[in-house]
Design a binder for these strands. Structure first.
Lengths: 213, 213
DNA sequence: GTATATTCTAAACACTGTTCGGAAATTGAT
DNA sequence: ATCAATTTCCGAACAGTGTTTAGAATATAC
């Protein structure tokens, strides 16, 4: 199996996805029209249904594509076992950089507009390797192993990873939705707040302490 | 001016907005149909154009409504000048609580799907009082005044406020998009990470320092 | 009571995603 | 090379969308 026919199918399938993504980039997620995509790749609207069962399925495919590239982007930053603090920061910066470089993919992935397809992303699936979550968890684990983070309870490692995720995700989203027009250089600020959160983990108070003090 | 006619107009206008919001809550942002909204309030589709210039304008009105309630929600937490740390955390929790309680409003406000109307939100407008940003800035300022945060450079106050915003926004968004199904209690984790970031600011290194160390 | 401004409707227009019947085109086997 | 079977594609149609327009109904003001 897997020959001339299937290769052509896979290629035009990719062409459809590329056209769709370009259309999202130009006209926003709202302006993604199957008919326009069809015209772009010289097909009849009905022909697309040979490659994607529905518009939502097409969007879902774009989400998965974005997710793969996202995971790869995070995996691409070299693990620096000798400097876990720098690795911690670099992972965060890479998260934000991907969002800035691929805002359409990023928003489709996390917004889930119109897609009811069961996206399997997020932290729960700890069995899956090489996901962006595992990369962040590794960054945390390195700092624990190096003695920089002193965890006292079993759940704390996951809590720290979650905190890192929440901060960089907020940075990424605000970056592409609010600060895109303003050409301000935000990287220094991101580094500042990433390091600050890092220092908080180094201090290491507060886990499972009483709320108001 | 401002009497029987205008009051009726304002009231049905609100009815339209309520119906629209309910429809977003039930069918998602994608499932907001003007015709369905019209049917819901016993009007013809064309009649809605007497109250909103377009669908985007209706969504924009919902955004503004959400923004007002959001600002009010943050302003409603009593400022605790004697315990700026608790205030810092409470503001963050309130931010998340609003997002969880009003996910439709929250997502419309920050997602901007389909709305090209110039939403005036975000931090830049520091002239405007009583916005959610000013509330967060006040929480930071109190900690500076109390001597908990030791700022060394003028821009640092804004950087801290931004960091708080990024963290709680990430928490809020991930909460309503990822952890809604899972009925896990996340509040303790939110408190933990908020306090951790807080400690980082107390430590107060890193501002305008060289990136990798 | 009549003129005026406001509010509402029905009908139409140009779109959208999707389905269906059938026509091309490609494949595999004789 | 011929023929049957599968895969691929298209035109047409259906139900739905936001929006516009002409005109009817209604409420206001004099």
């Amino acid at each position: 199996m897997s020959s001339p026919r299937q290769r052509r199918k896979l290629r035009t399938r990719q062409a459809v996805m590329d056209a769709a993504l370009a259309m999202v980039r130009e006209n926003g997620p709202h302006g993604l029209s199957l008919r326009a995509v069809a015209k772009r790749v010289d097909y009849s609207p009905a022909a697309l249904y040979e490659y994607f069962g529905s518009k939502d399925a097409l969007i879902g495919a774009l989400c998965n594509e974005g997710m793969q590239r996202f995971d790869a982007a995070l995996r691409s930053v070299p693990v620096d076992e000798d400097n876990p603090q720098a690795y911690f920061v670099q992972i965060g910066l890479q998260y934000i950089a991907f969002a800035e470089a691929n805002p359409e993919h990023f928003r489709l992935m996390f917004d889930r507009i119109g897609t009811n397809t069961e996206l399997h992303l997020g932290p729960p699936k700890e069995t899956e390797q090489d996901t962006f979550w595992m990369v962040m968890a590794e960054a945390v684990r390195l700092n624990i192993a190096a003695g920089h983070f002193k965890v006292k309870q079993p759940g704390e490692e996951k809590a720290i990873t979650l905190g890192l995720w929440q901060l960089v995700h907020g940075m990424a989203i605000l970056q592409i939705t609010m600060f895109r027009a303003t050409g301000e250089k935000m990287t220094d600020l991101h580094i500042y707040n990433l390091k600050t959160l890092y220092d908080g983990y180094v201090a290491g108070n507060h886990f499972a302490s009483n709320p108001t003090e």
